[in-house]
């Protein structure tokens, strides 16, 4: 029973990656509204590579999964989103202690490290209408959540979604959407949407 559970996080990451791949058209539509419409394609390519890297990985170490998946994503997705999400997972994986099933607090700390790497790389901050606006409250919820990983991830996913919803009221100041200024209002940020769908699928699979 314990072995099944231990393999669970890697399976959760795989399911989350597949969920983003499956959301390609939804993400494309979201990006057409404020960007150039290729976010879904890039993310589908990147998360497919993420899932393939997991399939090749021996064992189920969560840190290794995040690093291998993040590297595969970064080297296949392209664009800003590939660099951002690749950086996030790679840096999070490097920060996570070894083990198949991370503690929620350790996972939150690792994700926080990943998010800081994203801030450093992309020079964006909360409120700029990026994936940070979903990831920041999501990681905070994970850190403050229950000890049970599945429950904590559910709280994380919920916080990600409300963070994503809040991006509708934000004016883009970074990325291709920044040229639109106030015309970006009313649309959620596609990167925040990707992060949210990823969290929701991870939580659902772990639950």
């Amino acid at each position: 029973m314990e072995a099944t559970q231990k393999a669970g996080f890697k399976a959760g990451l795989a399911a989350a990656a597949e969920a983003v791949v499956a959301a390609k058209d939804v993400l494309t539509k979201a990006d057409q509204a404020i960007g150039d419409g290729d976010h879904g394609l890039g993310m589908a390519r990147g998360f497919r590579a993420f899932a393939e890297a997991l399939a090749k990985q021996e064992g189920g170490d969560a840190a290794a999964s995040l690093q291998a998946g993040g590297r595969a994503l970064m080297m296949s997705s392209g664009g800003a989103s590939g660099a951002i999400f690749g950086t996030f997972f790679q840096a999070a994986g490097k920060a996570l202690p070894p083990g198949d099933l991370p503690e929620p607090a350790a996972l939150a700390a690792a994700f926080a490290t990943g998010l800081q790497a994203v801030r450093d790389r992309g020079k964006a901050k909360a409120g700029d209408k990026t994936m940070i606006d979903a990831a920041e409250p999501a990681i905070a919820a994970l850190a403050a959540g229950p000890q049970d990983l599945a429950l904590a991830l559910t709280g994380m996913a919920r916080a990600a979604r409300s963070g994503m919803d809040a991006t509708r009221d934000m004016v883009a100041t970074t990325g291709k959407a920044r040229a639109l200024g106030e015309r970006s209002l009313g649309h959620p940020d596609p990167g925040a949407m990707t992060f949210t769908l990823w969290c929701e699928a991870l939580a659902a699979r772990m639950g």
């Binding site: 290729d38 394609l41 390519r45 970064m74 296949s76 997705s77 392209g78």
Partner: peptide, 8 residues
């Protein structure tokens, strides 16, 4: 790729 920066 199409309209997307090359990877590192």
């Amino acid at each position: 790729n199409m309209f997307a920066a090359p990877t590192p």
